[in-house]
């Protein structure tokens, strides 16, 4: 046997800021607090139910699974809670309980534990779970129908669905400030740009997330949507809309930079983020789905081991 290598793991530089895993996760949880607050304000008690169920079930699933598989039970590190919270924030406020429970089970089991738990997952667990749920029970992630019983004082249809189905004229009237302030149909914690940017910048300032990934992700969205827009403004929406509508900001700050599925070197981080942004726009503008963020994140997770090899080479 010449080589029995099965996994190639990125080597130095590892990046250590001298703190423990739980410190990082608790900071992530805190950074999501503004998004949680916004979600509770917009959607009320049903959103509280979804969030509480997502967080608690993720913790309990992880405890159960690690216990059954005889591994060390690490639920205290906050990782399961974080995965659960991120998954919950992606859902419509009226998500049924069984959907939440299945989603967190998939995120913890398939997203993380089968790969050996925290740090071993090649994909963002919450995004992977969302994608599996989406392919299985699409209508339950259809915000227009799930939120049909909410009376909104703003354009009451999902901006990206409207864009895809009715063209850019249909969304041209929506003020960008409305989108930024969360006046859009969407997930519990994904609609309020203000809350997401606040939490994201805070994470960066604390040194928990490196700025390169979110910034290059958003730059990728901006540049690619601008190219489409300039080429055919009657067919495509502008960059401001794409950055503020749907999952973009949530993806840039809270999905793409997930610790174990994203790169750590400078240039790879830029490539990783920018690719995610560009994929998002390609899926939105020429792909089949209204919002491309989740699938774009999974794609960059997939190529992460490859691009993370781009690093200073030793000269022989």
């Amino acid at each position: 046997m010449l080589s029995s290598k099965q996994f190639i793991v990125s080597h130095a530089p590892f990046w250590h800021n001298g703190t423990a895993v739980h410190y990082r996760n608790y900071n992530w949880l805190l950074a999501l607090a503004p998004a949680v607050a916004a979600g509770l304000t917009y959607f009320g008690v049903p959103a509280l139910g979804v969030i509480c169920l997502a967080v608690s079930s993720a913790i309990l699933w992880e405890g159960l699974i690690t216990k059954l598989s005889g591994r060390q039970v690490n639920v205290g590190d906050g990782n399961a809670a974080l995965v659960g919270l991120i998954f919950g924030l992606l859902l419509p406020a009226t998500a049924p309980w069984w959907l939440v429970l299945s989603g967190t089970l998939i995120a913890i089991l398939i997203g993380q534990q089968v790969f050996g738990g925290i740090g071993g997952n090649p994909f963002n667990p919450a995004a992977l779970s969302w994608a599996i749920i989406f392919l299985s029970w699409k209508t339950f992630l259809d915000f227009d129908s799930m939120l049909a019983n909410y009376s909104f004082n703003f354009t009451p249809y999902h901006p990206l669905v409207a864009l895809k189905a009715f063209g850019p004229q249909a969304v041209a009237q929506i003020p960008l400030l409305d989108l930024f302030l969360g006046k859009q149909v969407g997930g519990i914690g994904t609609t309020c740009g203000l809350a997401l940017v606040t939490g994201g910048i805070w994470l960066i300032a604390r040194g928990i997330v490196r700025w390169e990934i979110p910034v290059s992700f958003l730059a990728g969205v901006l540049v690619s949507s601008l190219i489409f827009y300039v080429a055919a403004p009657a067919k495509f929406a502008g960059p401001g809309f794409h950055i503020l509508a749907g999952y973009t900001l949530f993806g840039a700050f809270f999905l793409a930079p997930e610790d174990s599925s994203s790169p750590v070197n400078f240039v790879p981080m830029l490539i990783y983020g920018a690719t995610g942004g560009i994929m998002t726009i390609l899926i939105r503008n020429i792909g089949a789905y209204p919002d491309g963020v989740i699938f774009a994140v999974l794609v960059i997770n997939l190529i992460n081991p490859l691009i993370d090899k781009i690093r200073p080479q030793r000269v022989n």
């Binding site: 509280l48 079930s57 913790i59 906050g78 809670a81």
Partner: peptide, 26 residues
């Protein structure tokens, strides 16, 4: 880490109760 675990389970159980109330009452 044992203390962390106890806290995590305590949080999980409380949130679960809140969730059950939210789903059942509303």
């Amino acid at each position: 880490s044992k203390k962390h675990r106890t806290v995590a389970y305590a949080v999980a159980v409380h949130l679960l109760l809140v969730a059950i109330v939210c789903y059942a009452a509303f």
